[in-house]
């Protein structure tokens, strides 16, 4: 016998993603969503109070006349079960956060509610890659690699062309590819390594240094440029540092103007909820959208040869992702 609140609580178990605006700490986002969900769950109509039978003395002269003291049975609601006394039915909901985004970066942030936290753990065990859009600007260098930091150096950037930039990016990507092979604990001369490499399955297990698996310039207009990055195990600070190093490699300096995550594993910008939609009803809808995809994704994975590797993946987009690598 589940109360409406419990039924609603079960509905919000799962994964969804939000669009974190820049300038907000992820903890604030998480806490805000948690309170909104609690509000939504507790706003459901509460169950009627259970009744108990009690013998009530008739009020007439209880002290004076015991002969007149008669009892009448009445069923009275048990007030100690009232919501005003017990407090709201749900006091906390587990809301877990996927790969973090620091305060100054924005983008897709995966959140898990309730039992979704297990799925979240499994998701990150499957070596997901993330897409970022990184905006940079040539000409200055700052102490924290972002454009708000203290400027430590200025330089010219007239000599930089798109060609030169792409050459540097290719070099960086090559270096990262090497690192990827190094971290993928397989003997490079073995047949096993060959077969994995053919399927694009090579990569670090669990923790490693940040690895950029893809790097591309999508916009170049000196001094501004925009890069699209696919990476593993990164932090936003590392991406800023990459921009800084690209600047140095080009015999100039560069700062990062913004880091924006456009994809985290299977979660894309398209399904991300913006700030105005962080309410229980919208979240339930978003989680509901995720659920059917989970059921569908199970079948293709089962007959694919990747099955043993992808034990608990809930994601089918992962496969295509692997191929890209």
């Amino acid at each position: 016998m589940a109360t409406p609140a419990i039924r609603m609580f079960r509905k919000i178990d799962g994964l969804f993603c939000v669009y974190k605006p820049s300038g907000v700490h992820w903890k604030l986002v998480r806490d805000g969503i948690e309170t909104n969900l609690l509000k939504g769950v507790n706003a459901t109509p509460s169950q009627p109070l259970p009744k108990e039978v009690r013998f009530l003395a008739l009020p007439a002269g209880e002290a004076e006349a015991p002969k007149g003291l008669t009892l009448s049975a009445a069923s009275v609601p048990v007030l100690s079960k009232h919501t005003l006394v017990t407090g709201p039915e749900f006091q906390n909901i587990k809301v877990g956060v996927g790969h973090r985004l620091d305060a100054s970066s924005s983008g897709v942030l995966v959140l898990a509610v309730g039992n979704g936290n297990k799925a979240l753990n499994n998701l990150y065990k499957t070596r997901v890659t993330r897409d970022y859009t990184v905006e940079g600007e040539f000409g200055t260098a700052t102490d924290d690699f972002s454009n708000t930091g203290r400027i430590v150096e200025r330089s010219t950037y007239g000599h930089i062309t798109k060609d030169k930039l792409e050459r540097v990016l290719a070099m960086l990507q090559g270096a990262n590819q090497k690192a990827l092979l190094m971290y993928s604990n397989v003997d490079m001369r073995s047949q096993e390594a060959y077969e994995m490499a053919v399927r694009g399955l090579l990569g670090p297990d669990g923790k490693s240094l940040p690895i950029l698996t893809g790097l591309r310039c999508i916009h170049f207009q000196p001094p501004n440029f925009t890069l699209e990055v696919q990476c593993l195990n990164e932090t936003q600070k590392y991406l800023r540092k990459v921009v800084h190093e690209i600047g140095l490699e080009l015999r100039s300096t560069a700062v990062c103007k913004g880091v924006r995550r456009t994809r985290d594993g299977p979660f894309t910008l398209q399904d991300a909820l913006t700030r105005h939609h962080w309410k229980a009803s919208d979240v339930i809808q978003a989680i509901g959208q995720y659920r059917p995809s989970k059921k569908k994704s199970k079948t293709p994975i089962k007959d694919s040869p990747l099955q043993e590797l992808e034990e608990s993946t809930t994601v089918n987009q992962m496969n295509s992702e692997r191929e890209q690598q």
Partner: peptide, 22 residues
């Protein structure tokens, strides 16, 4: 206060008024 609500007249009246005892 849960343990006393059903026994105390004041508390049960307060609940009926809509006071958030919790």
């Amino acid at each position: 206060l849960k343990d006393y609500v059903d026994k105390s007249e004041t508390l049960s009246k307060l609940v009926q008024l809509g006071v958030h005892l919790w």
